[in-house]
């Protein structure tokens, strides 16, 4: 009986062929590096979600340690003898007769006792050290990852949306509107990328939303071009003509028929944008053109780390670099695996 069931399976799959996403997932699941990278990315995303919801690193601004507290594994900073003059021993000289404030000391002491004093002791060491204000570097790294990744992903979404919609319109309709959009594309491409970013940064000012807008509004061109080419290619294909024949509207043909067939291109391109934008945000924030003054991102951490390093406090630099390197590497490897899985023809070319 088992023989028949084995024979039936291929027949069933021929009737309902495997979808592009399902096939891609099957290929992706066999890519060990890709799966491993995806696990790291998902771990990061869970961490980021937890920090965004306030479960962890909520009090990253609390100054829990002494300034520049060392990491646990290094132990507390050695006590440095700062004064060469020994403290005088013996009781203090009695100045009561000379001191005009002396009669009131008792009164002030009594007043002081009425207030409860909440003295917090600052930790000498923190899990991965502290920054110049004694804030926990580990908490900062988590919060910084949240902001950096959030900005990168959101900016990539903005750029993808602009690029896809404009590319679809330009590739699908062509003619006048296509020419107009090509002109806009050429204009954006003509100004060197970094100058365009600076020009936008000069007018938008700093802050998280500004960075998202700056990167999104300047970074859509590559995606636009690719989506346009795909839409031009697909626009004349039989399935689109068939859709036209049964009366599907332009919008329906563009976004319900063609878009799903080019969505893998968009997805891979968007993943590449995320990596690029995360790096760009880090640099913009370092230069003081990025996230707000009170926000922490990998870029602001690196900006602080520069002066820390000269005084020998390397842990903030290490924390920011490490978390960024791990996330970006994992994300890039995952993108590579996803691209190979979605479009097996491209495997190993890059």
């Amino acid at each position: 009986m088992s023989v028949t069931s084995v024979e039936l399976e291929p027949a069933a799959s021929q009737i309902h062929s495997e979808g592009v996403w399902r096939a891609a997932w099957r290929r992706f699941a066999t890519d060990r590096i890709g799966v491993f990278a995806a696990t790291i990315v998902i771990t990061f995303l869970l961490l980021i979600a937890a920090s965004a919801l306030g479960f962890i690193a909520e009090n990253w601004e609390a100054e829990t340690g002494v300034p520049n507290a060392r990491p646990h594994f290094l132990g507390p900073a050695p006590v440095v003898e700062t004064s060469v003059i020994a403290m005088p021993s013996g009781p203090n000289a009695d100045l009561t007769e000379l001191d005009p404030l002396a009669p009131r000391y008792a009164e002030w002491d009594a007043q002081t006792k009425q207030y409860a004093v909440n003295e917090t002791t600052k930790a000498q060491t923190l899990a991965f050290g502290g920054d110049w204000r004694g804030r926990d570097v580990l908490a900062k790294a988590v919060k910084g990852s949240e902001i950096s990744v959030f900005v990168g992903v959101l900016a990539a979404l903005v750029a993808t949306l602009i690029g896809t919609v404009l590319g679809a319109i330009s590739g699908f309709f062509g003619r006048r509107i296509g020419d107009l959009l090509e002109w806009i594309y050429n204009v954006f491409e003509a100004i060197p990328g970094i100058l365009l970013i600076f020009a936008f940064a000069a007018v938008f000012g700093r802050g998280m939303i500004s960075v998202v807008l700056i990167l999104g509004l300047t970074g859509w061109t590559g995606l636009y071009r690719q989506v346009r080419a795909e839409f031009m290619k697909h626009g004349s294909r039989e399935y689109v003509r068939a859709a036209e024949a049964i009366g599907a509207s332009n919008t329906s043909r563009m976004f319900r028929h063609i878009l799903p067939n080019v969505s893998h291109v968009v997805l891979v391109r968007m993943a590449l944008l995320v990596v690029g934008f995360i790096k760009a945000e880090v640099i913009l924030s370092y230069l003081g053109l990025g996230v707000g003054v009170d926000d922490v991102s990998w870029g602001t951490m690196l900006a602080e780390a520069q002066s820390d390093l000269i005084r020998g406090y390397w842990w903030q630099l290490a924390a920011a670099t490490l978390s960024m390197a791990v996330f970006v590497t994992a994300f890039s490897l995952m993108t590579d695996a996803a691209r190979d899985a979605l479009d097996p023809k491209l495997r190993g070319l890059e």
Binding site: V282, G299, L309, I310, L317, A325, F327, V328
Partner: peptide, 18 residues
């Protein structure tokens, strides 16, 4: 190279200069 690409330009300069 994948790893090298994922470290910010800033880190190379900060560490190299230091």
């Amino acid at each position: 190279t994948t790893l090298a690409l994922s470290i910010s330009f800033l880190v190379y300069i900060i560490v190299g200069q230091y």
